Simulated scan of single mutants.
Amino acid sequence: MNRTVSRAVVLLASTAVATTGLAVLSTATHAAEVGENCHVVTTGTADWAMRTSFNSYLEGPIANGALYKYKGGIEVRDGVETSGERATRQFTWPVSGSNDGEINFGGGVHWTGHNHYTGDDASQAPDNFILDLDISNPTIEFNGTQATLLVDYKSREFVDTTTVAGFLSGTQAELATITLDEAIDLTTPSVTVIGETVPTAAGVDVMGGFYPAGDALAPITLNLTNEVVCDEPQEPETPETPDATTGSSEGGILGIVGILAALGGIGAVVYNYLVSAGIIAAY
């Protein structure tokens, strides 16, 4: 293949490569502009004590006083932080993620009291708490100023202070409805919203029947931070054009044919032109 032909082939192939590259770049740029590569990352906490009177009762002399050989209390786990005691007890739940109209929190809280076991085998005590409630992984589904609080739970039905009843359990059960003081806006950098919580009919079962429907639970305060994160669009890889002036004539032609094949439709047009002009033989 002479030098003039080689230059023509290289020029045509380079034009095809550049045209294809521009098309890919244009598509990637458009995707970034319309936000296809962007998403909101929500972090923060929810301050929610479940019910102040419940915490006060559980940590007082009735549920965990001198009457009981083995005592329970309140345990937190998986990122939940707690402060205060009895009427001032507070729990801070960490945000674990968010979607459109939904905020997920992590961690769990375990309340135990009224231990019915009086024997000497301490390993039996954990199975004999008459009051035994565990709540974890809260989710808030919201629409405007109305929201629903869902939780994973395991709870004993509360009959009386001498009966160890069976456990009830569920995943993402509706514990309470929430009336927010303002709508949650995950497009703003920071959000602080307060909501009043009231147990649903299902929430009564979640709490072991300890409180009737309609009794207010503790208010909830959401402290959220939202950040828009965009992934950088990947730039297309441009195939290297072989040097037509080096190597054997057959090797150079095969290399160019390979490049044209990789370019798809544009490559096919260039290839057909080269064949019709007699510059290369059909392969």
Rank of each mutant, 00 (worst) to 15 (best):
L58E: 00
L58M: 03
E59P: 09
P61K: 12
A63Q: 06
G65K: 09
G65A: 13
K69E: 09
Y70S: 08
K71W: 05
K71Q: 14
G72A: 00
G73V: 09
I74Q: 09
V76S: 12
V76N: 10
V80G: 05
V80D: 07
E81H: 11
G84Q: 10
R86Q: 14
A87Q: 13
T88V: 13
T88D: 14
T88W: 04
R89W: 00
F91T: 02
T92A: 11
T92Y: 02
T92C: 02
V95H: 12
S96P: 07
S96H: 02
G97N: 08
S98N: 01
G101K: 10
G101E: 08
G101N: 09
N104F: 06
G106R: 02
G106P: 02
G107Q: 04
G107H: 03
G107V: 11
G113Q: 04
G113R: 04
H116R: 13
Y117E: 02
Y117F: 10
T118D: 02
G119H: 02
A125V: 03
N128G: 06
F129M: 03
F129Q: 05
I130F: 03
L133H: 08
D134E: 14
D134L: 12
I135P: 01
I135R: 07
S136P: 03
P138K: 02
N143H: 15
Q146D: 15
A147K: 06
T148S: 15
L150A: 08
D152W: 05
Y153N: 05
Y153K: 10
R156N: 05
R156T: 08
E157H: 15
T161Y: 04
V164F: 12
L168Q: 15
T171G: 07
T171E: 10
Q172A: 00
Q172I: 06
A173I: 10
A173N: 07
E174N: 12
L175K: 01
L175D: 04
A176C: 12
T177G: 12
I178C: 05
I178G: 03
T179P: 07
T179H: 01
L180D: 08
